[in-house]
Amino acid sequence: MTLHDATLRDGQHAVAHRLDAAQLRAYAKAANAARVPLVEVGHGNGLGGSSLQIGQALLDDRAMLEAVRDVLTHSRLGVFVAPGWGTGRDIRDAVRAGADVVRIAAHCTLGDVTERHLALVRELGAEAQAVLLMSHMADPGRLAEECARMVGFGAQAVGIMDSAGHYTMRDVTERIGTIAAAVDVPVIFHGHNNLCLAVANSLAAVQAGATVIDACARGFGAGAGNTQLEALVPVLDREGHTTGVDLPALLRAADTAEDRLLEHGAPTTDSVSVMSGLAGVFSGFRRPVLRAAAEAGVDPLAVFTELGRRCAVAGQEDLIADVVRLLAKAAV
């Protein structure tokens, strides 16, 4: 069982991508002391993600990696790349800066876009992983086909992200079980907590065959947050799944995250989070939706409902303004 700590990447969504070098370093050092297998670092949307449209990071990609590289003496360093934002140059720079694992992400029906990126990662000698985003938008069979295709491109681990926090345990069991039966590499699951099911869904994923599970300290992540790492570890241990993580040290790392990273408190499952999860909308839309809805005086729940109807995905943040204008006009 390998735990993939995304606190310093997915957690960036919760603070508008503004973590500084001292914050990154403090948490990375604590996670390393807890013997967390891998720490993922970067902009919330990965390498090359810093932009006016989706949020500018305080530091560039290389500065973030350099801030943590020397303190990760046990933990491996991971990065996340979505083709269209991250480029081959970004991947080369990240590997030069010490990235051990490069995870390539694609929309759940577009695994073919990972081919060139995966080949480059393998060429550079880093571990190549691949994940499907917004995976609730495809059925188990299609997800398995896409994962098998990415294994053919060179992925050494594949899996799915519940980017909208939409799944129940049955959804996870069906999808992970089908993927695990279709590939011969480790299977990944990444959960979000919009319906307060992230830990339960992660356990269901393990029981269905996943061996790489993503989680964050205090659930620090987009929207309602991710699977809570310091809760997941003892649950897995109680169910007989060895993680190799030092739990007392992990609890101290979670306290470090709360003290140093959670400027506005830990993510919570509120009414907006529930509606976002039910509508199947990317968790990273939370902050821009709330901001645009407040400025226009429209109901953010209605905005999420309409975005879900339009099947909006990450990178389509411009749809938020369109939907807000439509709802404001309808109200008038």
Rank of each mutant, 00 (worst) to 15 (best):
M1P: 06
T2H: 14
H4Q: 13
D5A: 02
L8Q: 01
D10F: 05
Q12V: 02
Q12D: 06
V15Q: 05
A16L: 12
H17A: 02
R25F: 11
A30S: 03
N32Y: 10
V41G: 01
S51Y: 07
Q56I: 13
R62C: 07
D70G: 11
F80W: 07
P83R: 03
W85A: 12
V101R: 03
C108E: 04
T114N: 05
E115V: 09
R116F: 09
R116A: 13
L124V: 04
L133D: 07
M137E: 10
P140V: 11
E146R: 04
A148T: 09
A157F: 07
A164V: 10
Y167L: 04
Y167V: 02
M169C: 14
T178V: 09
I179E: 01
A180I: 10
V183I: 10
P186D: 09
H192W: 06
N193G: 07
L197T: 08
A208S: 06
A210P: 00
A210R: 01
A210Q: 03
V212T: 10
I213W: 03
D214N: 03
F220E: 01
G221S: 02
A222M: 09
T243N: 01
L247W: 07
L251I: 15
L261N: 00
G265V: 03
A266T: 08
T268M: 14
T269D: 08
S271A: 15
V272S: 12
M275H: 13
M275G: 13
S276C: 15
L278M: 14
G284P: 08
P288M: 02
A292R: 11
L301E: 14
T305G: 14
G308E: 10
K329V: 15
